[in-house]
Design a protein around this nucleic acid. Structure first.
Lengths: 211, 211
DNA sequence: AGCGTTTTCAAACAGATGTTTTAATCGTCT
DNA sequence: AGACGATTAAAACATCTGTTTGAAAACGCT
């Protein structure tokens, strides 16, 4: 209940506020106040606001990356066993499902995923670099596996299509709970499981489309 | 060369910096310094930083919205003339092409499009509301037209797929010039025209996918 | 209990932020 | 030329920012 608890409370509060208001629009005072912790605690435990962000991202992203890697590797291994190329759909599932399903890990995880989703198009180098650096090896593996699944596509075309996929996915990650069109007449949106299946269907069709 | 020029210079500088660094990470001093204008000019001409953002968004978005509306209406009219339902592809083109092609309108337009792309997932209510309010009627028209094109899809499913489409599109809008994977070995990315065609092909396949 | 380390706390720091104020300047009419 | 409204300019405003300081408190250990 001593320092570890303080650190965790700061991480949780930061995660929540960074996700809700953005990095630059969140003050250390807001974080420490929500965490019920002294203002100086952030700099004492993490060194700086930026280092807090880094720690906070790593805490969730490293396990998530490993999970995604395991899933992709499993798909590749299964394909190699049969001698066939891996299917695009299976690879997409291996990459997307752990990410979106991760939100069910708790309310903090939900916040985190929307923070990650937004970081994809973050203008600020502070946030973007911190994030891209951690996720790049994962992306590379994903991309190279897809090249095996869709060898007929030129690299530049596949790269564009993966960019679209990432876009659709990250948009879901940060806006799935606030739909753009929000009428009283609108039907209730899909639940998480159905949304994942729909996204998979959408991006699989897009990736596999004839050129 | 008097007030109009000052106002325009502020708008241009704000557009550039908001797009590059984000709204909250851009100071009025940075804007007025780039615009070679006195600091107080922003508050004098626009009232506040937030009102500057609003003005700046409206300047480009109102014409763009009208263009998109014209294109969609044209597709609907052509379909009505033949008695057939409009095609999803034609509607997607009517919505997407003017938006992405708008970037060629000049260097400022390029900045603006990436600002708009990011606003889709903006956490801050200031930016998000300012933007969503202007673009909502356009989205509604787009969505309702797609319902005509794809009547077999349940509304909730179509809504999810439109969300994916918006995600892919806005991600292209703000990151097409900084690809995630940027190796020396990577091939040179597609040019603007090819990118638009690829995006169209991708989202058309996704939207029309069997359920 | 007593000592050394780690953690907490209140206060202050220097700098940046959006906004306002007051006076000077410009442009345009009569 | 003179006068009035619109625009610019420099300076100051209060507030908020991340960070640092130095002392107090809590902790673990023998």
């Amino acid at each position: 209940m001593s320092q570890l608890d303080t650190k965790t409370r700061i991480l949780d509060a930061g995660e929540h506020l960074f996700a809700r208001d953005g990095f630059h629009n969140t003050s250390l005072r807001a974080i420490t106040s929500l965490a019920k912790v002294n203002l100086a605690a952030v700099n004492y435990h993490f060194g700086s606001k930026e280092a807090l962000l880094q720690t906070l991202i790593e805490r969730r992203l490293l396990p998530l990356n490993q999970l995604r890697k395991e899933q992709i590797d499993a798909v590749l291994a299964a394909a190699a066993a049969t001698g066939a190329a891996p299917s695009a759909r299976a690879l997409l599932r291996a990459f997307i499902e752990p990410t979106l399903a991760f939100r069910s890990a708790g309310p903090g995880a939900q916040d985190f995923i929307s923070l990650v989703g937004r970081s994809m198009s973050e203008p600020d180098e502070t946030v973007r670099n911190c994030f891209i650096g951690l996720v790049l090896p994962n992306f590379r593996l994903f991309f190279e596996s897809l090249q095996l699944a869709l060898p007929q596509l030129p690299t530049a075309v596949l790269m564009a299509r993966v960019q679209f996929t990432i876009g659709a996915m990250s948009h879901v990650m940060c806006t799935s709970h606030k739909p753009i069109i929000n009428d009283p007449s609108a039907p209730k949106p899909l639940d998480d499981t159905a949304l994942i299946e729909q996204l998979l269907q959408f991006v699989t069709s897009g990736l596999e489309a004839p050129q």
